[in-house]
């Protein structure tokens, strides 16, 4: 049996990739299962999906903790989560990146396959959706499933969801990625901060689970107002950049930011206002400060800015 863990973000199609892989293995006469991480998912948030393949019936109904392969759909994910966690020493990481395997930095030096799946997707599909391309790389790097089966798997799974025409393009993306995949050993240079999670015992658990305001624990804040611990800036693909000289302090971006990640300079203490900041007719400092810890890069601020003072950059 081999087990695969897919790392993606909500909306990137990690679950469909796991399903297409399982379908490909199934076509080859194996027993195969694909399943999502058992949790709530929102677009942009890191998510997991899993696949298991064996010759006979698979009885395990647990999540995968020690995968043979990890597949990473988004090149920024390894900076946030240790994708090599639990990966078997004999295992391999398949990563969407334009880097060579030897240039990739992960938590451990492991056998690594890389492909610029984003580039392939943009070229073949016209959108940066990498869930099909990465499967081509998987086939090439692991050899446990043929590219023909992967293409059939994509036709089955993607076809049912997005139609035959788009599925064919995705199969093509897998084929192109297959040809561009290289394998080597990555650098094990990334160090991840120790994961801190508040996990009280049944005895420590608050009565009825009720939580007060900003309760301090060894694992950070919990309770009302404590979601600030969740730095959603890591979801971002595009980044707003403000040219404060063009700002007219209309506050529209400040109002429209769904995250509250924009603060008006006029609301900040003087010490935090950059030198050379202009003033509006009322004498208030002109401009905004973006808190990239929380900005998800939605782009509403740039779209709504009446003076085009904000631009989205990659």
């Amino acid at each position: 049996m081999y087990e695969v863990r897919f790392h993606g973000r909500g909306g990137q199609g990690a679950v469909m990739a796991a399903q297409a892989l399982a379908d490909a293995a199934f076509i080859e006469g194996n027993y195969a299962v694909a399943f999502p991480f058992f949790g709530a998912e929102r677009r942009g948030a890191p998510v997991l999906a899993f696949a298991r393949v064996d010759k006979g019936k698979i009885y395990e109904k647990t999540q995968v903790y020690e995968p043979d392969y990890v597949v990473v759909l988004d090149d920024k994910l390894p900076l946030m989560v240790d994708v090599t966690k639990g990966l078997k020493d004999t295992g391999m990481a398949i990563i969407n990146t334009s880097l060579k395997p030897e240039e990739v930095e992960l938590g451990r030096a492991v056998k690594t396959a890389t492909v610029d799946a984003t580039g392939v997707a943009l070229e073949v599909l016209g959108t940066p959706i990498t869930n099909s391309a990465i499967l081509g790389a998987f086939a090439k790097a692991t050899g446990v499933v043929s590219i023909e089966s992967i293409k059939k798997g994509i036709m089955d799974i993607f076809g049912a969801r997005i139609g035959e025409r788009l599925a064919e393009k995705n199969a093509r993306a897998a084929e192109v990625a297959y040809e561009r995949t290289s394998v080597g050993i990555c650098k094990g240079t990334l160090i991840y901060p120790e994961e801190k999670k508040w996990l009280p015992t049944a005895q420590e658990f608050p009565t009825g689970g009720a939580l007060g305001l900003e309760v301090k624990t060894d694992a950070g804040l919990i309770g009302l107002g404590s979601f600030v611990e969740n730095k959603t800036g890591s979801w971002r693909t595009f980044m707003p950049v403000a040219d404060n000289s063009k700002c007219v302090n209309c506050k529209l971006c400040w109002f429209y930011c769904p995250e509250g990640a924009i603060e008006m300079l006029m609301n900040l203490p003087e010490s935090e206002i950059p030198a050379g900041t202009g003033t509006d007719p009322k004498g208030n400092p002109k401009g905004i400060k973006i808190d990239y810890d929380y900005c998800k890069g939605c782009g509403i601020c740039a779209n709504e800015c009446p003076t085009k003072a904000i631009t989205m950059e990659r």
Binding site: A40, G208, G209, A210, L211, G212, L224
Partner: peptide, 8 residues
């Protein structure tokens, strides 16, 4: 003295 009761 705010509290959250019944959180997801």
């Amino acid at each position: 003295d705010p509290m959250a009761i019944g959180v997801f």
